Amino acid sequence: MTNHYVAINYIQCNEDFRDRFEQMFATRAHAIDTMPGFVNMHVLRPEKAGDAYLIVSYWETEQSFKDWMKSPAFTAGHQRGFAELAKAKEEGRPAPMSSDFKIYRIISE
């Protein structure tokens, strides 16, 4: 089995931020694509308003994922999202999105 670990980022977006969020992914930097141990990624749009987007990334090892999270490429790849959060905070608005990472081990394919 090649893909041992899956990291899922559950992203909640305010309804008025969904189009911007999707646009950011459509024009993403692809910084993750060259990371050692990275296999593939899927971005899943929820069917029901209020449900989270799922960013599902596949990794050869858990350490590969952890290395990505600490890398300059991670910061570069998320720069626009971080800027959106900072802008909302500066303007005294609630964050337009929130993120929650969870890691899973593949036990069956």
Rank of each mutant, 00 (worst) to 15 (best):
F21C: 09
V56M: 13
F21S: 06
I106A: 10
R18I: 13
I106H: 05
Y58V: 15
Y58T: 14
M24A: 04
F65I: 10
E109R: 14
N3V: 15
V39C: 14
E60Y: 01
D19G: 00
C13D: 05
N40L: 04
D100W: 01
R80Y: 09
Y5P: 04
A29R: 15
G37R: 09
Q79M: 12
D16Y: 01
I55Y: 08
R105F: 00
T75W: 00
I8W: 00
I55L: 11
D19S: 10
P36H: 07
E91L: 10
I106Y: 04
E62Y: 07
M69Q: 13
P94T: 06
G92C: 10
G92E: 08
Y5E: 07
H4C: 02
T75I: 05
D19I: 03
S64G: 15
I11M: 12
G81V: 00
E60L: 04
I107C: 05
A83M: 12
A49W: 03
K70E: 04
S108P: 00
F101A: 14
E84L: 06
Q12E: 02
A7M: 10
E91M: 11
V39L: 14
T27R: 12
T34H: 02
A52K: 10
F17E: 00
A83S: 14
A88G: 10
D100Q: 13
N14G: 05
G77M: 04
N40S: 14
H30Q: 14
